[in-house]
Write a protein that binds this DNA or RNA. Structure first.
Lengths: 185, 185
DNA sequence: GATAACTTTCAGGTCTTCCTGAAGAGGATG
DNA sequence: CATCCTCTTCAGGAAGACCTGAAAGTTATC
């Protein structure tokens, strides 16, 4: 992989390489494409605003590939477009605040996983209710199935609300800390 | 999909179908194969111990496919082998306790995602330390990169330990509740 | 208005994952 | 010991995800 900056110490470049490879390795577990993960990894670990040419050169991938995957990262809010005056090229940079970043990841995960599951489970529960099933609702199999659906639903809504409270509370805490830091200046 | 029990009310079968389809849909987000998700979904929602033939028939997939994916589910601990006396076939059933199930899922996620990331980030941090870099360590780029790595590391170790405490506390809580319930009987 | 610079979209190719159907392995039965 | 039952493993094919390289689109410059 061709480095962007030739004067960068080798260890820093190696760390970048390792991080990008790590992120790419996680892509299949995160339900995203390898390239999407690589681009994000590159932008996060360098902390720089890079153009599409920069990303192409560094990751050795085609312009089309960069374009499609960058668009997704921007859509997720993990990457922002940055304009440099006098330069027609778009530059892209990652969020640097880890909390903000993972808040977005959690929101995306909720959108893609939790919400569809909860929606379908509620529909299933509805279909298994006495109102829907009538007398059959008291059959042991129906009761057992309803309980399984309900257990799963309860668990997921609990985890979901805890996660939301977690991110909300961290945000509040960090805002307070930031304000205190500013007052001391 | 051919039902296992012909006398089951249609709504129950429909709920099973919907749940299995939901689980399959989540497979790419969970980094598992569609079949692995389907089998787990089938075993969980039916609550029954099914043989490989049962699973093959219900999901309309090959024996080899069932075998490979069932093995993985057993390895994860999400599915258990059940022996029925006088029957040579192996039967498989899902964990029914949602907490236990997700504790295992969390453990698997830790093993596949968190641990490798933390390991690599620690190595990166080590490589960026003054002990490794010498005078170059005080370069602004090196300090910035070290901070990014450290921020990510801090965040992930916090989330990891909170998740572990969460599952541990729930386990303790539920054990206490179960004991109380038994004493009342 | 033509040209250039830059990004997006597309059609087709590549590669990886996943599955099938058959062979192989192991163990029970007669 | 042969046969059968059941599960595992394998080689190859299928399907889908992903990528490329080029065409198309957009906008700025001259």
């Amino acid at each position: 992989m061709k480095p962007v900056q030739h004067d960068m110490p080798a260890p820093l470049l190696q760390v970048e390489e390792d991080f990008i490879a790590l992120w790419r390795g996680m892509s299949s577990l995160w339900g995203i494409s390898p390239t999407m993960a690589e681009i994000h990894g590159l932008l996060f670990i360098t902390g720089a605003a890079l153009s599409m040419d920069d990303i192409m050169a560094r990751l050795r991938i085609s312009r089309g590939n960069v374009s499609m995957n960058l668009s997704k990262l921007v859509e997720w809010g993990l990457v922002k477009r940055v304009h440099k005056r006098g330069d027609r090229r778009e530059y892209y940079e990652s969020l640097t605040d880890v909390w903000e970043m993972f808040t977005l990841v959690a929101a995306q995960r909720k959108r893609r996983e939790i919400d569809p599951i909860v929606t379908t489970l509620r529909q299933c529960r509805e279909r298994l209710s006495p109102e829907s099933l009538g007398a059959e609702a008291s059959r042991p199999e129906a009761e057992a199935q309803r309980r399984r659906v309900q257990d799963l639903l309860s668990f997921l809504t609990l985890v979901d609300s805890l996660a939301q409270r977690f991110f909300e509370s961290q945000r509040g805490l960090r805002t307070a800390v930031d304000l205190l830091a500013q007052e001391k200046e």
